[in-house]
Design a protein around this nucleic acid. Structure first.
Lengths: 142, 142
DNA sequence: CTTTGAACCTCTAGCAGGTAGAGGGTGTAC
DNA sequence: GTACACCCTCTACCTGCTAGAGGTTCAAAG
């Protein structure tokens, strides 16, 4: 039987985060000692490890919830899990593409800096300049 | 004189967001009509365009605040703006590297999916499997 | 058995960067 | 002069945690 702190150490999760996962129903309510402290077994350790691994891969908590539901029911078809993973892959590829475009623009800004003062700073000028802007107003997110 | 809605359309910003920027002191308090409605001029349009462009490049609101302070004072040295931009570039490069590692792992998961049901789903198995995990517990962030 | 002290408990509030909705007032065009 | 799109404030919500206050429990050492 593991305390919450030990479970946290084993999975690289803060104690507060584990309690948070419990609160939102991602982790089950564990058994308690007489005094009311949480105690965990192997099943919980595995579940939390799964969650953390998926988080490291960038899955949202909602996607992880779906994956856990699937994995709790061994008869459901695999393609559901597969399509969640594909969706995730697509998102990540979009983010990479977006960030690469930003990198290009930032590199241009930085390399051309002349070293004077802000009145003729290219960094600021590029930001002020609308004409070279991406003009894609929709997706500003990460 | 522009209404807040027009300003929003011209810059691709939601009305609520403009008011939010005002609230946190990123946009100035504009003039008002008799009836209390906000009215904006060119200076505000330029400032908001600057903010949105910087946001599209991934700068945080705090970084943007610094950049705006710099740009309000034309005598300050350019290298301050330059170093903010370089910092931003470094962050973006880190994010790209991280996402590329995730993409590799996700691709592996997805390509190997056999099409059975979840009891032998590779997606779920990879997530359950700790041994191939990145084991870097620290950086789970974006 | 008692005492220490680290680890646990609940609860509330906060972070970024907004978004949504309730409930009501304004501005302008017909 | 009235429709109705737009504006106003205020509060609460979103994701994914994190921090702190104020108090309790557990396990080991004496």
């Amino acid at each position: 039987m593991l305390t919450i702190g030990t479970l946290g150490k084993k999975t690289g999760t803060k104690v507060q985060t584990i309690r948070y996962y419990e609160q939102i129903g991602l982790m089950p309510e564990p058994g308690r000692t007489e005094g009311g402290q949480r105690r965990y077994g192997h099943a919980e350790l595995d579940r939390l490890a799964f969650i953390r691994h998926a988080r490291q891969l960038g899955f949202s908590l909602e996607a992880i919830r779906e994956l856990l539901d699937l994995s709790d029911d061994p008869d459901r078809p695999c393609h559901e899990a597969d399509s969640i993973a594909r969706r995730q892959l697509k998102q990540i590829e979009q983010r990479i593409a977006r960030l690469e475009a930003l990198r290009t623009e930032l590199k241009r800004m930085v390399h051309e800096c002349s070293g004077g003062n802000t009145s003729d700073c290219l960094v600021l000028e590029v930001l002020r300049d609308h004409s070279e802007c991406l003009t894609d107003h929709e997706d500003i997110g990460a």
